[in-house]
Amino acid sequence: MAYSDKVIDHYNNPRNVGQLDKSSTEVGTGLVGAPECGDVMRLQIRVNPETQVIEEAKFKTFGCGSAIASSSLATEWIKGRTVDDAMAIKNTDIVKELSLPPVKIHCSVLAEDAIRAAIGDWKKKNGAAETAQATTVAVAH
């Protein structure tokens, strides 16, 4: 199957590969998987406690080119956004940007899930009240 130029670009030059200190209270970690294909994706964010802005985002993905590109793009997009803004990113935005074919849509879903899981983890670390809210949001989708 032919990958789009943008997928190939992210695959060859993935942005923000790496990891952040999992134990830090400013860091949220999301580890998600796609059982269909066996992909695993870890996405981490470091949030400024004052401004709630995501100042750093890192990922590590084991999976196909589309999964790597989706998570690479996700880290690019969430950097500089507030936590609430980042929650607004939809898998369909990723699909459009990367021109993912229908069989690879689940890769974008995985990236969206990873963002939500990372933010959820950060919220859990920073007050239980917000956790309840995060859970509700996750269920609504």
């Binding site: 580890l31 998600v32 998987g33 796609a34 059982p35 269909e36 066996g38 695993v40 870890r42 590590k60 084991f62 939809k90 898998n91 369909t92 229908p102 069989v103 690879k104 849509i105 689940h106 974008s108 879903v109 995985l110 969206e112 899930d113 899981a117 989708h141």
Partner: peptide, 29 residues
């Protein structure tokens, strides 16, 4: 094939992402 369809469009009917136990994910990673 089914998951691709179910995850399409507006993301409705998507599968529960937490279906796979967290410890297995950690291990796989």
């Amino acid at each position: 094939d089914l998951s691709a369809e179910s995850a399409a469009a507006d993301g409705k009917d998507r599968k529960d992402p937490s279906r796979v136990p967290a410890d297995l994910l950690e291990e796989v990673f």
